[in-house]
Amino acid sequence: MPVLDRFDTPARLPEPDDAGRAAWSARVADLVAPLAARFEQFFDPTATDVPADAQAPAIVWNAFPATLLQSATSQEQRWRAADASRDRQDEYCEWSVERDGAGTITRVTFTTEVPEYFEHLAAQDPDRLLALYRELVGPHVELDQLIVGGQYRRDNVHNRSTEGRPAHLVQRNNTLGAALVLAAEATVLRHDAAGDPVTTAQALVRCGGLGEPLRNSDPQIAAATNDAAATGAEVSLQDPMGLYLDGLLVAGMRTPDGEDPATFWTIERGDAEHAVRARYAVPPERGYAVGDITLDGRPIRFGAQLADRVGVRLTALVRPAGHRPVRLPCVA
């Protein structure tokens, strides 16, 4: 496989012209190139060829924030805490909930769309940014609420709530840049104070300073990348680089009319292989709402109950190589 011509947009979202595609590719290159220069076993697919025997392993984890499992004392407490703040939704997946006048959930919207892409839109075409916000969030959005003082606000008034419809990821660790840095840093092999190799996921994160060991995502990404680097291979992320929804597990869900609950999961942006936005909602003609569906015998009262069943995916790119990596001590 030849060297990649340029980085594609997340989920291969359409750009109106070549200039827009080139601008996005340049933005990703600014993230990838410095990491490839710094880490010997992290490579830039626009500068290094990808051979036919390269592997593209999927790294999958759960969307519910694992950090809340440490502090919550009950299922309902952790669901309520996760629904209360987008800052708690730190697994590269965030969601918002809509309810009817009686408080019954009518729709839950999940996004893994990286904020860097919306910054790209703001810089390239503010009118397109506004049109997209009005499509995703609502017709009431105004441009001066998104771009303030010449800068795009990731946490603008329309993209920081757990109510309504989100636009993209906003939690500070939920970015494409963070995922790339984690993958690159995890190519460094480590040993503990006794000189023994550090290979288990959480121990590796702690030893290498690779993010948050109590998250679902960071240990999974770090361990998969580190395992590949240990073989002497070089690692990157597969194009189109991004975080993607891996679907909803519906086992244990029951609908009032016996309909398959999977039919109410709808991808709104991307496709089945590269979904960056999806909703869970029951069509009005069914005569019931999401809150009338049960999950393990309980009515769905929180979006977090669904997040417990949502997968998030990152795809690595592993290029066979002949490196002989040396294990380094844990970071301070």
Rank of each mutant, 00 (worst) to 15 (best):
P2H: 02
D8S: 06
P14E: 09
E15R: 08
A22T: 09
A29C: 04
L31G: 01
A33C: 10
P34W: 02
T46I: 06
D53H: 00
F64Q: 00
Q70L: 15
S71N: 15
Q75K: 01
Q77G: 07
W79I: 10
R80Y: 06
R86S: 11
V97E: 12
L121H: 01
D125Y: 12
D127F: 02
R128D: 04
L129D: 03
L130T: 04
L132T: 08
R134M: 12
H140C: 05
V141D: 05
E142D: 15
L143N: 03
D144P: 07
G149K: 13
G149D: 13
G150T: 14
Q151P: 13
N159K: 09
N159Q: 08
N159L: 05
E163P: 07
P166E: 11
Q171E: 15
N173W: 11
T175D: 08
L182R: 09
A184E: 02
E185V: 07
T187Y: 15
T187I: 14
H191E: 13
D192P: 12
D192G: 15
A201P: 07
A201K: 08
L204F: 01
V205F: 14
G211W: 11
P213C: 13
T225D: 03
A229R: 09
G232C: 04
V235S: 08
S236Q: 01
S236T: 01
L243Q: 11
G247V: 05
L249S: 13
A251D: 15
P256F: 14
G258K: 15
D260N: 14
D260Y: 04
W265M: 03
G270D: 06
A272E: 13
E273T: 02
H274P: 06
H274C: 07
A275G: 01
V276P: 11
R279Q: 11
A281D: 00
R286H: 13
G291K: 03
D292P: 10
T294C: 06
D296G: 10
I300W: 07
I300N: 10
Q305S: 11
L306Y: 06
D308H: 12
R309L: 12
V312E: 08
R313S: 09
A321S: 15
H323I: 14
L328G: 00
P329R: 01
C330Q: 03
V331H: 08
A332H: 09
